[in-house]
Simulated scan of single mutants.
Amino acid sequence: MILRQFLHTEPVAVSYLFGCGGKAAAAVVDPVGDIAPYLKTAEETGMRILYVVDTHIHADHISAGRRLAEAADAKYVLFAEADAASPFYGVRDRDVLPLGNVSAEVLHTPGHTPEHISLLVTDRTRCDEPWFALTGHTLMVGDVGRTELAATAEEGARVLFRSLQRLKTLPDYLEVLPGAFAGSVCGRRLSGKPMSTIGFEKRHNVAFRIEDEEAFVRAMSEEIPPPPPGAAELRAANAGLALV
């Protein structure tokens, strides 16, 4: 397994490159900005980028996903029912992206946005169980994703609650690699530490700890931060439906 984490500050976001060095197969998740670092890292680690995944249609920045996929001759991956322009490689819940000895299983985890997915990543050279989860803006370190950027806060919260209950069934030791950290507009109590585990978040993440749906909806409907500037326009651009 090869894993590289890219921390961005303008905007605040996290991207990942991971894959199988032995089979020279990699994926990039949620790329931002200049695509050169991803291409360079793939070259340095001896891997070819096969998939470029956006966990969701972003509302706080312009995605580099389509540009990177084109440059790398890779498949650009979104949830199959995303409201987005073609072409993209549509995946559904429980689909698997093969990367040599590594695999990434798709979990549909809506709520932050309707099309949001997470990835359960397994390295079969070590075991047949997932090693970490790329959770995008569904579950982050210290908080969960805001729910009103693509729906009402209440509607999004009810959907997100069900997604989080699903993540809670994952093993406590499973690593959580999120799509943002402190400073992002997509969460309220985010930590500056850009990784955690399911178990630690179950114990110490206030929003993730809530077990009652109505209490969760109330919590997600309070203290809503201002939306990212041009959020609707950015989502439309990232979906390929408009220009910014």
Results as ranks from 00 to 15, higher is better:
A85L: 04
R67P: 05
L160D: 03
V185C: 07
P178K: 07
K168D: 01
A180P: 00
S86Q: 14
L99Q: 01
L78I: 00
Y76C: 09
V91Q: 03
V185I: 06
P98K: 06
R94E: 05
R162Y: 14
T135Q: 08
D172H: 09
E148G: 14
H61F: 15
R124H: 12
E81W: 05
D128R: 11
E81N: 08
T147E: 14
A72C: 02
E154P: 01
F181E: 05
H61C: 09
K168Y: 01
L167A: 10
I62C: 08
R66I: 08
Y173Q: 11
L174F: 12
H61Q: 11
A151Q: 15
V141F: 07
W131S: 02
G100Y: 09
V141L: 07
V144C: 11
E155I: 14
K193A: 11
R124D: 01
A133I: 10
G192Q: 09
F200E: 15
A133R: 01
L167V: 13
T109V: 09
V185S: 10
D128F: 02
M195H: 09
P194F: 06
H112V: 13
L119I: 11
V176M: 00
G142C: 04
S86K: 15
A84T: 04
P110F: 15
L78H: 00
V144T: 11
H137Q: 05
T125C: 08
D123H: 07
I198D: 05
A82Y: 07
A74N: 12
G100A: 13
E105Q: 14
A82K: 04
R188P: 15
P171G: 09
V185W: 12
R67A: 15
F88P: 08
G136T: 12
G156W: 03
A71P: 00
P114R: 02
Y173N: 04
V176W: 10
E175G: 12
S63V: 11
A84L: 04
A69K: 09
L120G: 00
A157N: 10
T138M: 03
R162G: 03
R67H: 13
V121K: 11
V102C: 06
A64E: 05
Q165V: 01
T147D: 13
A85C: 04
P110Q: 14
L174M: 12
A69I: 00
V185Q: 05
A64M: 08
V185T: 05
K168V: 04
A84Q: 02
T135S: 13
A157K: 15
T109R: 02
L99P: 03
R146S: 13
L174Y: 10
S196F: 02
D143I: 09
T152P: 02
R67M: 11
T197E: 01
E70G: 00
L139A: 06
G156V: 10
G187P: 10
L120E: 01
R188T: 15
D73S: 14
E115L: 03
L164I: 08
G145H: 06
D172R: 07
L177F: 08
V106A: 02
P194M: 12
R126H: 04
L99H: 01
T169C: 06
S184R: 14
L190M: 10
A151M: 15
T197S: 05
R92G: 03
E155R: 12
L107V: 14
G145E: 08
E201F: 10
D172T: 02
S103N: 06
P98W: 01
A72T: 00
R94D: 06
K168T: 06
A182I: 04
A64W: 07
P194N: 13
S86H: 07
L97E: 08
